[in-house]
């Protein structure tokens, strides 16, 4: 019995992207995040790189690639902040891994699944960042502000739905 057939769910729903898209979309997300935050400070609540990480992870359905993609995007994001490099890298590595693992088993093309996934991953990202800051870095003055994080998750979810539809167009045809 073959361990992996060509008609398996993973093979059928695994998408690939051109190298240009793989490189430019994360950079565009980071640049857009930086520019929008400067123009309208409330946009700093959003996390466009996180949305892109989730999208690539669930589309490729490879935990390894999801982990590496998340790590790369998170590290670039960290480099632009004043915080130690690796905080966002670690958080997005975990998110990429989990998102890709879920993508293997769940239909992630439906609107409901995408909304729920983005909401949960946004909250998970906040929790991981809090734990890293509080436990690893010893920043005891950091507290978990649940209301703010819930609002952030809602905002990310609202933005992620149209972004996912836009990024669907960058997938290579089967």
């Amino acid at each position: 019995m073959p361990s992996q057939s060509y008609t398996s769910r993973r093979e059928l729903e695994e998408h690939s992207f051109s190298p240009a898209v793989t490189l430019l979309v994360p950079i565009a997300a980071i640049v857009l995040q930086v520019l929008l935050s400067k123009l309208f400070w409330r946009f700093s609540m959003l996390d466009l790189p996180l949305i892109v990480t989730i999208f690539f992870a669930v589309s490729r359905r490879s935990p390894t690639v999801g982990t590496l993609t998340g790590a790369a995007i998170g590290l670039i994001q960290d480099a632009l902040t004043g915080r130690p490099i690796g905080i966002n890298g670690m958080a997005k590595s975990v998110i990429g891994y989990i998102a890709a693992s879920i993508g293997v088993q769940v239909d992630v093309d439906s609107l409901t699944t995408r909304a729920a996934m983005n909401f949960v991953f946004s909250l998970l990202n906040s929790v991981i960042l809090f734990l890293i800051s509080r436990r690893l870095l010893g920043q005891t003055q950091i507290h978990m502000m649940w209301v703010q994080e819930l609002l952030r998750a809602l905002a990310n979810t609202a933005v992620a739905i149209p972004v996912f539809f836009l990024l669907d167009m960058t997938k290579r045809p089967e």
């Binding site: 980071i30 995040q33 930086v34 520019l35 935050s37 400067k38 400070w41 700093s44 609540m45 996390d47 994001q77 632009l80 902040t81 004043g82 915080r83 960042l129």
Partner: peptide, 9 residues
């Protein structure tokens, strides 16, 4: 010309 892009930093 720019910011960190996040309200955490």
């Amino acid at each position: 010309i720019g910011s960190s892009g996040t309200d955490r930093s």
